[in-house]
């Protein structure tokens, strides 16, 4: 009886906790949705209403009418995807070396890579802009290249940690079978850490997707290359100083949903990883 009560209480507590966290994480998104669905008049009403009295799709319509926003979606996808793939590739090479090999200067290499991203973005912007101008690159490659400044240290460090955690026996077994180092990498290491790669990639993707300051500067003279955050910063009312709160909220939702869908697609991989990822030690 006592044990049973404790079990039930534990269950209740568990679900309560999940519910609370769920509300905390989801509420602002709910509020953005509600605000986007209100008419402008209802939006500025005091006290505010918890649910829209009349649904208005005006804000969403305005977002989809905005060409630069739609174009931004495409640009952002290209940029973020390229950055992610490159960072994962380069990062997993480095992670393999740093996590599984023995060589001199390992610690300095780790810290040097981390040091890339230890300055605030605003501090390196002027220098980076000078580099980009010297290389004379168009906006999209510029963004892809410069975003590595923050995605690469992240992928390198995370993958190093994951690779290091893999049991040695597996790699030794491969070596005994006659595989060289690179074969071990492609055939053993990468498949085994696939869930970790997906997670790391997803986090890096979103970091690149959300970047604003570099994008604003590099696309300033190439409006067709603008990414979503820049397009949204250029979102404005009909008149200077007017802030179209409803439209900004609507745009935020339109941008977030594809990402969540992306996660749902990749989720199978993560779930697979959870079950299969329990590596035989």
């Amino acid at each position: 009886m006592n044990k049973k009560t404790r079990l039930v209480l534990g269950q209740v507590f568990f679900w309560l906790l999940i519910t609370l966290i769920f509300i905390y994480l989801m509420f602002p998104f709910y509020w953005a949705t509600v605000s986007a669905l209100k008419t402008e008049q209802e939006l500025i009403q005091t006290p505010t209403s918890y649910f829209p009295k009349e649904l208005s799709l005006q804000n969403f319509a305005a977002v989809f009418r905005n060409d630069s926003f739609l174009r931004g979606l495409l640009n952002s996808t290209i940029v973020a995807l390229s950055v992610t793939v490159l960072s994962l590739l380069i990062g997993s090479f480095a992670g393999y070396a740093l996590g599984k090999m023995r060589f001199r200067g390992k610690s300095p290499s780790m810290y040097l890579i981390l040091a890339m991203t230890m300055f605030p973005q605003i501090a390196v912007l002027a220098g980076l802009y000078a580099v980009i101008r010297t290389l004379n690159l168009p906006a999209i490659p510029s963004m892809i290249l410069s975003y590595m400044i923050f995605t690469l240290p992240f992928t390198v460090w995370v993958l190093t940690a994951f690779f290091k955690g893999l049991p040695v026996s597996l790699l030794q077994a491969a070596q005994v079978d006659g595989a060289d180092m690179m074969q071990t990498f492609w055939q053993i290491l990468l498949p085994l850490t696939a869930p970790a790669l997906v997670t790391t990639g997803l986090l890096a993707f979103i970091q690149a997707w959300n970047e604003y300051l570099f994008a604003l500067t590099f696309t300033s003279i190439e409006p067709t290359a603008r990414t979503v955050p820049v397009a949204m910063a250029l979102f404005s009312g009909e008149i200077a100083r007017q802030e179209p709160v409803g439209e900004i909220m609507a745009a935020a939702i339109v941008v977030t949903i594809p990402l969540v869908v992306l996660v749902l697609i990749f989720q199978n991989r993560i779930v697979d990883g959870l079950t299969a990822g329990a590596v035989k030690g």
Partner: peptide, 11 residues
Amino acid sequence: VTVAAGAVGQE
């Protein structure tokens, strides 16, 4: 000639 101007809709 390139003019850097406001981003505002009607403007």
